[in-house]
């Protein structure tokens, strides 16, 4: 019972933080802020997927969370390198 309420709270908090990150992504005055917002967005998406997995009491969503975590990191590094060097793999 207490887990249900905590789950609802965590859903609300993570969804709200996704929304706030989206605001920074749209507003962000320069490229660095946008890259940071995208990175945060992928991390929060991992949290949301794991919460869906807890709510459904299933392990199916684990791979999706893992792949989003990995691709989020790789894409952050790729965009940052593109801004820094004008090329991703030199």
């Amino acid at each position: 019972m207490i887990v249900t309420y905590a789950l609802i709270f965590a859903f609300a908090a993570v969804s709200l933080s996704l929304l706030l990150t989206m605001v920074r992504l749209v507003k962000g005055p320069n490229t660095g802020d946008r890259i940071l917002a995208l990175d945060t967005l992928s991390i929060n998406a991992v949290a949301l997927i794991i919460l869906v997995g807890i709510a459904g009491a299933t392990q199916i969503y684990f791979e999706a969370a893992m792949i989003i975590a990995m691709l989020g990191f790789v894409s952050t590094v790729a965009v940052a390198r593109f801004v820094l060097r004008g090329d991703i793999i030199e």
Binding site: I2, V3, F9, V14, L51
Partner: peptide
């Protein structure tokens, strides 16, 4: 159950704090 609920609440709060700080 209490430990799970506490971990969920702490996790939600920290995620929210991170995004508020970002904004």
């Amino acid at each position: 159950d209490i430990v799970i609920a506490a971990a969920l609440v702490i996790g939600g709060l920290f995620t929210l704090v991170g995004s508020i700080g970002l904004l």
